[in-house]
């Protein structure tokens, strides 16, 4: 305390060194994936080099789609939009469907987790419904909503909700007995029990559910959009297939993969902010 001036430079020097070595580690971590990608591209090039190959080579893919790559923001009206707008539209649907699924799923999961009657009644149902493939919900939701956009959003909702419910329920049921005993002996009020014990104890499980849910949402939207049409990365792929623009499909798939990864990282990142460090215990 008496010599902050002595301590601070020393600490910041250590931090700089630390940061430096972290950056080096990070770069080292990039080498292996970069090599893997290069090998993958080389194999792809080799396999598609022949004169009667069905798929374009990587070089061909890039040259075919150069316009799409360098200009993701064009908007010629209708479905003729840049990849940014296609992905953006899909993401909007995911945002809506997933947010609804998160709200309803967490609430339902807590409800089911706190009541063993509800649990024994509903858990088997959830276990069955969660195995239904996303697209199987589409006809039903089209029949119910009669419109493409709400149907797509509903498909996301109904796909993402099961892992969220199931994980939240599990989290509530896994609250250590000791914590519940503390609540009982202190005679905590319901709200206090909820905010001080149930919710914090369940949050890690909720985030596991959200993470699985966002991955499924993204799977579901791409598939659903192929069928419902309109703007969206899913229909973009389908449209490209119908007009034999194979290179466009490949670029769109790369977009889909990267966006899916970013969505997953986003949930992990938010989870890291919300989960206090004691969860590492």
């Amino acid at each position: 305390m008496t010599a902050p001036l002595d301590i601070r430079p020393a600490r910041s020097r250590v931090n700089l060194q630390h940061l430096g070595s972290q950056a080096v580690n990070w770069l080292k971590g990039l080498i292996a994936p970069a090599v893997a990608i290069l090998i993958f591209l080389a194999i792809w090039q080799l396999l598609t080099m022949g004169p009667d190959a069905n798929l374009p080579t990587p070089i061909r893919t890039v040259s075919d789609t150069w316009e799409l790559i360098i200009n993701p923001f064009f908007n010629y009206g209708g479905t003729d939009k840049g990849l940014f707008w296609q992905v953006f539209t899909s993401l909007q649907r995911v945002a809506l469907g997933f947010t609804l699924a998160a709200i309803v799923g967490i609430a339902l999961g807590i409800l089911v987790g706190t009541s063993s009657l509800m649990y024994s009644a509903l858990d088997p149902l959830f276990q069955i419904l969660r195995t239904v493939p996303p697209l199987a919900w589409l006809p039903i939701s089209l029949a119910a909503f009669q419109q493409a956009n709400p149907s797509a959003i509903f498909v996301i909702f109904i796909t993402a909700i099961w892992p969220i419910i199931i994980n939240t329920t599990e989290g509530v049921r896994q609250i250590p007995q000791d914590y519940n005993n503390v609540a009982r002996v202190l005679r905590l009020s319901k709200p206090e029990y909820f905010f001080k014990i149930l919710f914090p104890a369940t949050v890690p499980y909720i985030f596991t559910g959200l993470r699985i849910g966002i991955g499924l949402s993204w799977l579901a939207i791409v598939a659903a959009e192929m069928l419902i049409g309109g703007v969206g990365i899913g229909f973009f792929i389908w449209d490209a297939w119908n007009s034999s623009r194979i290179s466009d499909i490949i670029i769109a798939i790369i977009y889909v993969g990267i966006v899916g990864l970013l969505l997953d990282r986003l949930i992990v990142f938010v989870g890291g902010l919300v989960l206090p460090e004691e969860q590492k215990q």
């Binding site: 002996v185 005679r187 914090p200 004691e278």
Partner: peptide, 20 residues
């Protein structure tokens, strides 16, 4: 008939809430 703060318990495991 039920737990209450007139009989406080120190548990076998540490029963502190880790987020507080």
């Amino acid at each position: 008939s039920e737990p209450g703060p007139d009989r406080m318990v120190v548990f076998q495991n540490y029963s502190l809430l880790p987020w507080l």
